[in-house]
Computed example of a mutant assay.
Amino acid sequence: MAKRPDTIETTLLAIELLRRIPRRRKITARELHQQLSDAGIERDLRTIQRQLEMLCNHFDIECDLRSRPYGYRWLEDARGISLPQLTPQESLLLGMAQAHLTPILPARLMKSLSGLFNQARRTLDPHRGGNSKLEAEWPDKVRVVATSQPLLPPHIAEGVFEAASEALYLNRWLKIVYRNASGKETQTSVMPLGMAQQGPRLYLVCRFEGYHNERSLALNRIQHASVSTFTFVRPAEFNLKQYHDDGRFGFGEGQMVHLSFDIDRAAGFHLIESPLARDQTHREIDGNRLTFSATVVDSAMLSWFLAAFGGAVSNIERRPIPATSSAE
């Protein structure tokens, strides 16, 4: 008689499979195998298939045998598995995290966490009362507010965000049809290197096939996207933080300048509280004027920032700072 595989590893594998089997659609063994592999859980496909057969015999999970590959899902009225209950505080944190992380985390990762998010929502359901009442009220007591005129997010074509985040997550080439601001469409492949949210817009930082410089593409201008089967080695020299620090999202090229300007005290006083840079200095010219100086990245965004003050700002100077040589 074969020894029963009652090990910690087998139990953990069963739990991971139970967590990933959906209720509203069917999932194949190969898809589950890929999900586990992406999560760092390496098991061969046959092991996954044997585990699924065992789970179907012990849980309310159905296997659609009508065609290959077989599909698995929880039965409609199944209770699923019971995991430790989230505390109201944990539920509050998860709910706020979901709201802010959805635009920037891989779609597959957000889907894998859907069970936790659903449990958090149930815990904070105001109709359930109890100890979660105060936590349920908290999201209505806090708000992230815009620093400029609020804009609605542009429409992103169906499947584009999911494909872009998937390719970024898996280091795979992304096939796209891109329409620029003038309406010209380009069909090409890009190497996704990063994703950023700027106000209501999402941008994909990438390299076009055959090129070695980075570009930022607005996701809403991608008309269609699909994940290629070809992978790439992520360039060691690319750093998303440095790309941001160089002002590339502000339409700059990394040129540092020593900025100085005069401004009416009423218009510029907030810059004393929220400086432009760590080396910023200021002094009063007279009772109603201030002069500021700081080292910043020169960019179109900086120009727009200064232009917004209109006649309140004057004597603007930008002195380029030579880049530090690698020999120094």
Rank of each mutant, 00 (worst) to 15 (best):
D6H: 09
F309E: 04
L32F: 08
L45A: 11
T102V: 11
M301Y: 09
Y70D: 01
M1S: 14
E158F: 05
T47L: 06
T47A: 02
R50C: 04
G254V: 05
R201D: 13
W173K: 02
S112W: 02
L83D: 04
P200H: 01
S82K: 12
A181E: 15
S82C: 07
R23Y: 12
F269Y: 10
H258S: 09
A163M: 04
Q85F: 14
R179C: 13
A167C: 06
Q51I: 02
A267W: 12
M54Q: 14
E253G: 09
T147F: 10
D264T: 06
E166V: 02
E76P: 04
S293D: 11
I263H: 07
L45P: 03
F232L: 04
Q198C: 09
T28E: 14
F208W: 08
A327E: 15
E9H: 09
R283Q: 13
L101F: 09
R207V: 03
P192L: 05
R234N: 01
V177P: 00
E328F: 05
L93W: 15
L152V: 10
Q119Y: 03
S226E: 15
P22W: 00
Q223V: 11
L94D: 00
L170R: 10
E62V: 08
S182A: 13
K141N: 12
N118E: 09
P275Y: 09
T7V: 07
I61E: 00
E185H: 05
D125R: 04
L13H: 06
N57I: 10
L32K: 02
H282D: 08
L124E: 10
E214W: 07
D38N: 11
I321F: 08
E253D: 14
A2G: 11
Y72G: 00
A78E: 06
L65K: 02
G252V: 11
D298V: 13
R73K: 01
L45V: 13
K141P: 02
I285E: 05
V160M: 09
I156H: 02
H258K: 12
L18E: 10
T123D: 08
S148C: 12
E158V: 01
N288T: 14
R172E: 06
L202A: 05
